[in-house]
Simulated scan of single mutants.
Amino acid sequence: MGTLRRELLDRALILDERHLRRTLTRYLEHYNGHRPRPRRAPRPPHSNPRRTHQ
């Protein structure tokens, strides 16, 4: 919410609800489309069930 407020709402003059919805839709498309995404949680190394430790 803070990012949305700082990057968009503090800098734009919203005229009505329709304008707000259109502006938010465009912002979310930009924000989610251009921002690098964090890698998913690292997966455990592949284990070999056939290998046994003696």
Rank of each mutant, 00 (worst) to 15 (best):
M1R: 14
M1E: 08
M1I: 14
G2W: 05
G2C: 05
G2Y: 08
T3Y: 09
L4T: 02
L4F: 04
L4W: 03
L4Q: 02
L4P: 00
L4V: 02
R5P: 03
R5G: 05
R6E: 12
R6V: 06
R6G: 06
R6L: 09
R6I: 05
R6S: 11
E7T: 07
E7K: 05
E7R: 12
L8V: 06
D10K: 02
A12N: 05
A12R: 09
A12E: 14
A12D: 04
L13T: 13
L13R: 14
L13V: 11
L13A: 13
L13N: 09
L13D: 11
I14E: 02
I14S: 03
I14H: 02
I14F: 01
L15F: 11
L15I: 13
L15P: 03
D16Y: 13
D16L: 08
D16S: 08
E17C: 10
R18F: 07
H19Y: 07
R21Q: 07
R21P: 00
R21E: 04
R22H: 08
R22N: 07
R22P: 00
R22Q: 11
T23E: 01
T23C: 04
L24K: 01
L24F: 04
T25P: 00
T25C: 00
R26Q: 08
R26C: 06
R26N: 12
R26Y: 03
Y27S: 00
Y27L: 00
Y27H: 02
L28W: 05
L28M: 09
E29W: 06
E29D: 13
E29Y: 06
H30K: 05
H30P: 00
H30C: 06
Y31S: 04
Y31D: 01
Y31I: 01
Y31R: 12
N32Q: 04
N32D: 03
N32A: 04
G33M: 03
G33L: 02
G33V: 01
G33P: 01
H34S: 04
H34G: 01
R35K: 07
R35N: 02
P36D: 12
P36H: 08
R37V: 12
R37N: 08
P38W: 06
P38T: 07
P38Q: 11
R39D: 10
R39L: 11
R39E: 13
R39P: 05
R39F: 10
R40G: 13
R40I: 10
P42T: 10
P42F: 02
R43H: 13
P44T: 06
P45M: 06
P45V: 05
P45L: 06
H46G: 05
H46A: 12
H46L: 13
N48Y: 10
P49R: 06
P49Q: 03
P49M: 02
R50M: 15
R50H: 15
R50D: 12
R51H: 14
T52I: 05
T52A: 08
H53N: 15
H53S: 15
H53Y: 15
H53D: 15
Q54S: 14
Q54M: 15
